[in-house]
Computed example of a mutant assay.
Amino acid sequence: MSKWKEAVINRIEQRSPTVRSFWVALPDREKLEFQPGQFLTLDLPISERRRERWRSYSIASPPNESNEAELCIVQLPGGKGTAYLFEEAEPGTRVMTKEPGGVFTLPDRPLEYDVVMVCTGTGVAPFRSMLLQRLPHETRHFHLIYGSRTPADILYREEFERLAEEFPHFTYSVALSRERPTEAPTFEVADGYVHQLYERDYAEPRPDVRFYLCGWSQMVDEARARLLKMGYREEQVILELYG
């Protein structure tokens, strides 16, 4: 059984009107070992019942030489966990955590297929970790399809724009459901939702592509159903649900 360890929130940064990044460090080590796509589970002081205190958040930062991980967290209306993190937690706050967990990861060998990452909101967190680690070392194509409401809600926008300029094998597309950007972006912007983008670009089923889906369960469930209906196989669609 995994043992709980003390962690400390080193810093907090506002990412969008409803999202903050929390950098969490494990003081018991010099380096935090994890695979991009994994998460940390925090034990927050929000209930007397142990399991009601647990909240899991994907790691948004890539593995590095530090003992720190960035967690990208959206404030949920009525959510006790995010109410504590947004209203009470501050740099220096200590919480309990476990070792990183989860199997929503890329193979640890060179990829033999293209990767299409479909996400909404903070579901982009594990993909950011994967891209920052793998893009410099892969030759297969990565396509990030990100869904948001407004331009102000787009997370890590400038970073993904930079990656698209730096790596020819990375494509960055955004679907906005409520408001378009006022300035001309350097990436593709579509009105509506993520589904129209992957249905257009991958309409003809291919054996050499995998779809990684992450975000709210309604989007993930719908995307999975649509991809299977398009002719893709179960093993080509990998899921991570956010509520």
Rank of each mutant, 00 (worst) to 15 (best):
H143I: 11
L144I: 05
L144A: 05
L144V: 04
L144T: 03
I145T: 13
Y146P: 07
Y146A: 12
Y146W: 12
Y146S: 11
Y146V: 03
Y146E: 10
G147R: 07
G147W: 04
G147L: 06
G147H: 09
S148Y: 05
S148H: 09
S148A: 15
S148P: 05
R149S: 10
R149W: 03
R149V: 00
R149M: 09
R149N: 07
R149F: 06
T150N: 08
T150I: 07
P151Q: 04
P151S: 05
P151G: 02
P151V: 00
P151D: 02
A152F: 03
A152T: 03
A152W: 04
A152Y: 01
D153H: 13
D153A: 13
D153N: 14
D153P: 13
I154R: 00
L155S: 02
L155I: 08
L155E: 00
L155G: 02
Y156I: 04
Y156A: 10
Y156Q: 08
R157G: 07
R157C: 13
E158H: 06
E158T: 03
E158C: 00
E159V: 04
E159D: 14
E159Q: 15
F160G: 00
F160S: 01
F160Q: 01
F160I: 00
E161G: 05
E161Y: 03
E161W: 01
E161M: 08
R162F: 01
R162H: 05
R162G: 06
R162I: 00
R162W: 01
L163H: 07
L163Y: 09
L163R: 07
A164D: 05
A164H: 06
A164R: 10
E165L: 14
E165Y: 08
E166C: 03
E166N: 04
E166F: 00
F167E: 11
F167D: 10
P168T: 11
P168V: 06
P168G: 04
P168K: 06
H169Y: 09
H169D: 11
H169K: 11
H169A: 11
H169C: 10
F170S: 12
F170D: 13
F170V: 14
F170L: 15
F170W: 12
T171E: 14
T171P: 05
T171V: 10
T171R: 14
Y172D: 01
Y172E: 05
Y172K: 05
Y172C: 05
Y172W: 02
Y172P: 02
Y172I: 03
S173N: 06
S173G: 04
V174I: 14
V174G: 02
V174T: 05
V174Y: 02
V174M: 08
V174C: 07
V174L: 06
V174W: 02
A175F: 07
A175E: 12
L176H: 00
L176W: 00
L176T: 00
S177D: 09
S177T: 08
